[in-house]
């Protein structure tokens, strides 16, 4: 078998060694001991009980697991917790500041969900998108939110809610 082949069926079983990581999550420092194969998503949900971040597809296709890492939206299912040492992470639990974040309020105002499972990811993604500053109209919002699937089909109201926040509550 060529050495460049990545699918190694006879790979020796590695000694499972845990690694210490320090991650700031929602403004609070956490020191964790994680096995290398634990994704950030699983660390949030299973180790820190931050279950607001949802596991949908676990393959980066649905966006339910979207969180902000150093202010940028990413799929937490496709990165390892051990790779997040020293990072600042914001999950849906850290979005509100005393009162609900304007994006949370807008999602309620515009009825931008039905079952709600994708909503934490939608809200984190929408906040990340507005911080990126590349969406100027509805079409661009739709394109730049395409990494977040809503199987209830609340897309039109999600776009309305995001546009309302983008326009500072002046969107009609």
């Amino acid at each position: 078998m060529d050495e460049n082949i990545t699918a190694v069926k006879d790979a020796p079983v590695a000694e499972p060694k845990s690694h210490p990581v320090t991650i700031n999550i929602n403004g609070q420092q956490h020191q964790l001991l994680v096995q290398p194969w634990v994704t950030l998503l699983d660390a949030l949900r299973e180790k820190l009980d931050l279950t607001g971040t949802k596991k949908g597809c676990d393959h980066g296709q649905c966006g339910a697991c979207t969180v902000l890492v150093n202010g940028k939206r990413i799929n937490s299912c496709l990165t390892l917790a051990v790779m997040q040492n020293g990072k600042e992470i914001t999950t849906i639990e850290g979005i509100a500041n005393g009162e609900m974040h304007p994006m949370q309020q807008a999602f309620i105002k515009y009825d931008a969900f039905q079952c709600g499972y994708c909503t934490p990811g939608q809200i984190c993604s929408a906040i990340g998108m507005l911080q990126e500053g590349h969406a100027t109209n509805r079409e661009e919002v739709k394109e730049l939110m395409s990494g977040n699937i809503c199987r209830c089909g609340a897309y039109s109201n999600i776009v309305e809610a995001i546009m309302d926040v983008k326009e500072g509550g002046q969107y009609e």
Binding site: G60, I74, L78, S125
Partner: peptide, 9 residues
Amino acid sequence: GASAQLRNM
């Protein structure tokens, strides 16, 4: 290509 989240990563 991909989604905004994936392009960030």
